[in-house]
């Protein structure tokens, strides 16, 4: 009976939640490679509709060079004005999340970064294993699209496109 209850609950589970998701980005030029990492991404996924929200605090990104981190927050992201970067979108053709498997899903949605919202599309690698979802995604952001201005003096040090990598683990959100 208890087992049955559990399976019923697992099947009906709608919301999946991820905390401490890893978000990192890379900018690579001839002059300099820049990398920053955050382990403070948060996300919620609706297991039935595929609707997904992902949010990360800009000040949570850690750089090797602290002065760079200061410039990132002060000059480029303006973290005081725009503290979060948020993605709201949808995972298409979401499979039955109660069954184990590996899937490649397409996503589409709006990314709000530096106060500018742009539509993004890409792929998510999703692994379902015993009630845990592991999601991985890589996509590129064009800095200029989000009205982030790079001064001419450091123009050669910062890439036009920045590669973003996300690794997140989702657990059923206990809604009872």
């Amino acid at each position: 009976m208890v087992l049955l209850l559990y399976t019923v609950q697992a099947q009906a589970q709608q919301l999946w939640s991820s905390q401490k998701a890893a978000v990192s980005f890379f900018s690579s030029t001839v002059m300099e490679d820049i990398e920053a990492k955050s382990a403070s991404g948060s996300s919620v996924l609706d297991g039935q509709t595929g609707t997904i929200v992902f949010k990360v605090a800009n000040t949570s990104f850690q750089f090797k060079k602290k002065l760079m981190q200061e410039h990132f927050n002060e000059n480029y992201m303006e973290s005081e004005k725009y503290p979060y970067t948020t993605f709201k979108g949808k995972l298409k053709d979401l499979p039955d999340l109660s069954k184990n498997g590996t899937y490649l899903l397409a996503f589409e949605g709006n990314l709000n970064l530096h106060g500018v919202t742009k539509v993004y599309q890409g792929n998510v690698n999703l692994v379902v294993a015993n009630g845990v979802l592991s999601a991985k995604s890589t996509f590129k952001i064009r800095i200029a699209d989000h009205e982030i201005k790079i001064p001419t003096l450091v123009f050669k040090n910062i890439a036009e496109y920045v590669e973003v990598r996300i690794v997140a683990q989702y657990l059923p959100k206990s809604s009872i």
Partner: peptide
């Protein structure tokens, strides 16, 4: 429980509602 589940699944989460479910560190 089943009743509750059915009721629960009947609610479709919009993006705005979903954002409220976020647990920020």
């Amino acid at each position: 429980l089943l009743l509750f589940m059915l009721f629960n699944s009947a609610i479709s989460f919009g993006q705005q509602d979903l954002e409220k479910e976020l647990v920020m560190p």
